[in-house]
Design a protein around this nucleic acid. Structure first.
Ligand SMILES: [Mn+2]
Ligand SMILES: [Mn+2]
Ligand SMILES: [Zn+2]
Ligand SMILES: [Zn+2]
Lengths: 151, 151
DNA sequence: GAACAAAATTAGAATAATTCTATTTATTTC
DNA sequence: GAAATAAATAGAATTATTCTAATTTTGTTC
């Protein structure tokens, strides 16, 4: 199949993807490009299943297993992060800057909480001698700001 | 059934369990007592399945669903914490003091990293105005101290 | 630039983690 | 101490994730 599908991924991000994949001897397939595009488009920390539903609008025959494969590749390329909250399915996030997550009990929404270098190194200090971490996952569970909903 | 089964739960912990359950109008059943005992006995952050295997030595007919029910009750009573790492099954921890987790890539072991009040409130400061968290989950992924293994 | 080999990608089927619901067991009330 | 009510239980079902065999793509040789 050689047909071109518009996966509507902006130039910068398309190049970022191509480069990251090339570094690892992997190819920018339509599926990977489309999955990355969808994650960038609506940054609501979707699950693999959410992403599947969205990608199917562009690539109707793609399977959920392929979504997982693409996501794993994007995580490996450090373009996407995984977010593990409760016993719920894993969520995915394209924010590559260091950040924590806030999960609102009321709305279910997940917010990014930025972590500058100072905060990040403060956290690293918590580790006892001999331990080195390459990944830090910090998440909050609570109530977000009150929104003006009708009672 | 009225037979007594030795669930070997020390007096202090048995009382803590009884009290926490009573506060919520719940009962210290043999199953709950045994699950709590097993979690306290070997603090290696076991999964529900690990706990099932251990509890079955005392209560051979207990089902995994009951293990989950008991664990959920213990979590509700704040006697046990859940630990969510990677896409792996949830682990359970009886350490009630504030702490983070370190997950070693090499050994797979999970260590507790203590968080004093100072550290804890430093983390809380990360939240923007309007957000309040009742639960903070912090986990590190990396390499633990080198152990003297052969080769 | 076709034929082949090797590598990479894909998706249906299988597995494993968790939850649901109907049943059983325990407690409270009369 | 029966009936009513509440709680606990476990087999069956669901859902999240992974596996494996098949397909597709790419690189090499002639
Ligand atoms: Mn999880
Ligand atoms: Mn899971
Ligand atoms: Zn995020
Ligand atoms: Zn712990």
């Amino acid at each position: 199949m050689k047909e071109e599908v518009n996966t509507s991924l902006p130039e910068t991000e398309r190049n970022r993807l191509k480069h990251a994949l090339k570094c690892r001897n992997l190819r920018p397939t339509r599926q990977r490009t489309c999955v990355y595009g969808v994650i960038l488009e609506k940054r609501d920390h979707p699950t693999a299943d959410d992403i599947h539903l969205r990608v199917r609008k562009k690539l109707p025959s793609i399977s959920l297993a392929t979504i997982y494969n693409c996501l794993d590749t994007l995580v490996e390329c450090e373009l996407v992060k995984q977010v593990h909250l409760d016993r719920a399915p894993t969520r995915f996030c394209p924010n590559r800057t260091p950040h924590a997550h806030f999960h609102c009990r009321d709305s279910g929404k997940v917010y990014d909480v930025s972590l500058d270098d100072e905060r990040l190194s403060a956290i690293e200090q918590f580790l006892p001698h001999g331990f080195t971490a390459d990944t830090i996952e910090l998440s909050f569970l609570g109530r977000g700001p009150v929104t003006n909903t009708i009672s």
